[in-house]
Computed example of a mutant assay.
Amino acid sequence: MEQITNYIKPELLAVSVVLYIIGAALKQAQTVPDKYIPLIIAGIGIALCAAWVLATSPVRTVPEIAMAVFTAVVQGVLVAGLSTYVNQIIKQAGKKE
């Protein structure tokens, strides 16, 4: 887990918690098939990270825009992956062998 968190900006670690809660709510509601939940979580993660990047970075030139898009996508995928990883750790820890 430390390897993943080394690449996520510290300000965005809270987004993983939010995504975990959203994923758990989607699972509990049973309105979305389980196979789509990670994709939904990734999309929401990218959108939330994009909002953070736009709020904290200058985006006036083409290179700045490209960097903002790249950062939003990479950070969004990483925080979504972290929330899914935590979910799996909790599931596996609860299993009895």
Rank of each mutant, 00 (worst) to 15 (best):
G23E: 00
N87F: 12
M1F: 10
Q75M: 13
V32G: 08
I22P: 03
A68T: 09
L12E: 08
V62N: 07
T61W: 00
P10M: 02
Q30F: 02
L39M: 11
I4K: 07
G81Q: 02
I90R: 07
E97K: 13
I89F: 14
T56C: 07
F70S: 11
N6D: 09
Q75S: 08
E11N: 10
E2V: 15
I90T: 06
N6L: 11
M1I: 08
P58L: 00
A47Y: 15
E11H: 09
A42V: 11
T61F: 00
S83F: 01
Y36F: 15
Q3E: 07
I22M: 04
A93T: 11
S57G: 01
V15F: 13
I41A: 09
I22D: 05
E64S: 00
V53Y: 07
K9Q: 12
Q28P: 01
Q92R: 14
P10A: 06
V15E: 05
I65D: 02
V15P: 05
G43C: 04
G94I: 09
V86Q: 09
G76T: 03
V86L: 14
M67W: 10
A93C: 10
L13Q: 06
G23A: 12
A68M: 02
I40Q: 08
Q3C: 05
R60K: 15
L54N: 13
I40N: 06
Y36K: 09
L48D: 00
P63R: 04
W52Y: 15
I90G: 07
V69T: 11
P58T: 10
I41G: 02
I41Y: 04
V77G: 09
S16D: 05
N6W: 10
K91A: 13
G43E: 07
E97F: 11
V73S: 00
G76S: 06
V62T: 12
Y85M: 07
V77K: 04
Y7V: 02
K35P: 04
R60E: 05
P33C: 09
T84L: 13
L48T: 01
T31N: 12
V74P: 06
V86C: 06
Q88A: 14
E11S: 15
A93P: 04
P33K: 05
K91M: 10
V18S: 01
G81F: 03
A72Q: 05
Q75E: 14
I21H: 04
L39C: 00
P63N: 03
A72K: 04
I37P: 02
G76V: 02
A93F: 11
P10Q: 04
A51V: 15
L48K: 03
M1T: 10
Y85A: 07
T61H: 03
A24K: 14
T61A: 03
L39H: 12
A47P: 09
